[in-house]
């Protein structure tokens, strides 16, 4: 059962970004319980036990979801909306990790009840640092309601 316990769900379609994120987490010893989902649809299937993830215990929830906004199939904001709309995932901590510093994206994210909004730094050092801090904070310091 241990391999099924996931602390961080990374919803990221860009493999480079995913790799850099995982590297940053690994560097800081946080990569053990990370699950990467490639698009919005996969994320929804995973959370609600549908599609490829049918039969998965939806009660097994991560400590944080790192959600990119620009995703294939289902947009990051739509994923967020679905999560917040469902009773089972309503309180799930979601951190938007995106390249967009657009004002409207921030506003819409917060409107939908995001827990945090982080713009991915382009410079790798800053990026790595930011990801590590997110990991530390949400996995180690933050206490989830469930």
């Amino acid at each position: 059962m241990l391999e099924h316990v996931v602390d961080i769900i990374l919803v990221e379609d860009n493999p480079n970004d995913a790799e850099l994120t995982l590297d940053a987490l690994q560097t800081h010893g946080l990569a053990n319980r990370v699950k990467v989902l490639k698009d919005g649809q996969e994320a929804l299937d995973y959370f609600f036990g549908t599609g490829a993830y049918a039969g998965l215990d939806v009660c097994d929830r991560p400590k944080v979801v790192l959600l990119d906004l620009k995703l294939p199939k289902v947009d990051g904001l739509d994923v967020l909306r679905s999560l917040r709309a469902d009773e089972r995932t309503r309180t799930l901590p979601v951190v938007v990790l995106t390249s967009s510093n657009e004002h409207r994206d921030r506003i819409r994210s917060y409107d939908l009840g995001v827990n945090s909004y982080i713009v991915k730094p382009v410079e790798f050092d800053n990026f790595s640092e930011a990801v590590a801090e997110i990991g530390f904070y949400w996995v180690l310091m933050n206490k989830v309601p469930f």
Partner: peptide, 21 residues
């Protein structure tokens, strides 16, 4: 702009990130 913000930065980040790695 939106495209630039998202799509142009991602390769840059990759270039910088993998250069660093």
């Amino acid at each position: 702009s939106y495209t630039v913000a998202h799509d142009l930065r991602a390769p840059l980040r990759a270039i910088d990130g993998f250069s660093a790695l």
